[in-house]
Amino acid sequence: MRLELRLAGEGGQGLITAAIILAEACAEYTQLNAAQTQSYGPESRGGASRADVIISTDEIDYPEVKAPDVLVVMAQEASDKYVQGVRPGGTVIVDTTYVKPIPKSEAERLKVVEYPISAKARDLGREIVANIVALGLVVEITGIVPKDAVVAAVLDRVPKGTEELNKKAFFVGVDAVKEL
């Protein structure tokens, strides 16, 4: 079993962090293998940002994502650029706060999950946790890694004092799937 995931948006949205957390959850708390790569422009804030994760029960030979099974888009530019690359029948998770509905032609060949990820994070008090809300959605939709592993990995990495906020954000994402 090999699952390819891509988180795409703008620099500063914390997508690389979310990808690292997901890969850490697999590698450090389960028997799963994980490989994480990224691509980014010269900007630290703004500009396109993309983080990939491969999760596999087998050894991961080629570590690059080619056609993701799951794509999260949190910026319009990312949606325009990456939706077409998703494997047929794959899932696109759209942050409706910033991204318009994806074109019908694409939507027909994919599973589309729409959720106002960034707006919900804002409701929690800080939009910066939108990446963790997105992580909740990904984990619940794929079911590939135990939630407690991800929570543990989130707590390993987030700044002191924000643990509860991040945990809450994660379960906002998880619960959203149940409501869909």
């Binding site: 850490e24 708390y29 994480q36």
Partner: peptide, 9 residues
Amino acid sequence: MTKKRARLL
């Protein structure tokens, strides 16, 4: 949850 010996690096 307990960490395994492996790390993501």
